[in-house]
């Protein structure tokens, strides 16, 4: 058991340090480690974990927590979660302090200015790739576009649009 926990910690701590772009960007590497290298899960079991963790709120990285849970219960959940969080969060902390410390330097200001349009483009890209995964008929495309319009035009909580989308898609079961 202890050996398994140590192995979970080692695998996910290493993943944490290379996971630029978060869980979706390193998904292929997570699958390779969990299914191929360590042999912890079959491919269908891994697909289930992916589906469940995307149905839950929170950062997509909680997929790793769920893998830990399925491998070793509560201890596995905690070890996997801490292993994926601590390295990258420590790095972010140090980088954040460095940026704050040199905040008056021209290069830090330029970096922060320069990253604004980059962040915008990457959010747009993740919207598109989520649509490619989620939308497979006219109804779901319409739900995505209507939700986007709701967010652009309204300051209200987007949860209203999401719940409506789910309800509409359940209702369409009646007509298919």
């Amino acid at each position: 058991m202890l050996g398994l926990l140590l192995q979970i910690a080692r695998v996910f701590a290493l993943l944490s340090l290379v996971s630029i772009g978060g869980a979706n960007a390193v998904l292929p590497e997570i699958r390779r480690q969990v299914v191929v290298v360590q042999g912890w899960m079959s491919d269908p079991a891994f697909a289930n974990v992916f589906a469940i963790s995307h149905a839950a709120p929170g950062p997509n990285i909680i997929m790793v927590s769920l893998i830990g849970w399925q491998l070793a219960g509560l201890a596995g959940l905690l070890v996997a979660t801490l292993a994926i969080m601590i390295p990258s969060c420590t790095l972010a902390f140090v980088a954040g302090r460095a940026i704050a410390h040199w905040s008056e330097r021209r290069w830090t200001k330029l970096l922060r200015e320069g990253l604004v349009p980059l962040a915008l483009g990457l959010i747009l890209a993740s919207g598109l790739s989520m649509m490619q995964v989620a939308d497979h008929d006219a109804v779901t495309v319409a739900i995505s576009l209507a939700t986007a319009a709701f967010v652009i035009l309204s300051r209200r909580n987007p949860l209203w649009a999401i719940v409506t989308g789910a309800a509409i898609n359940i209702a369409t079961l009646q007509f298919t």
Binding site: G127, M131, I143, T147, N169
Partner: peptide
């Protein structure tokens, strides 16, 4: 349906 909505939310 909720996943489609979430994609639209990000967009």
């Amino acid at each position: 349906g909720a996943a489609a909505g979430a994609a639209g939310l990000v967009l």
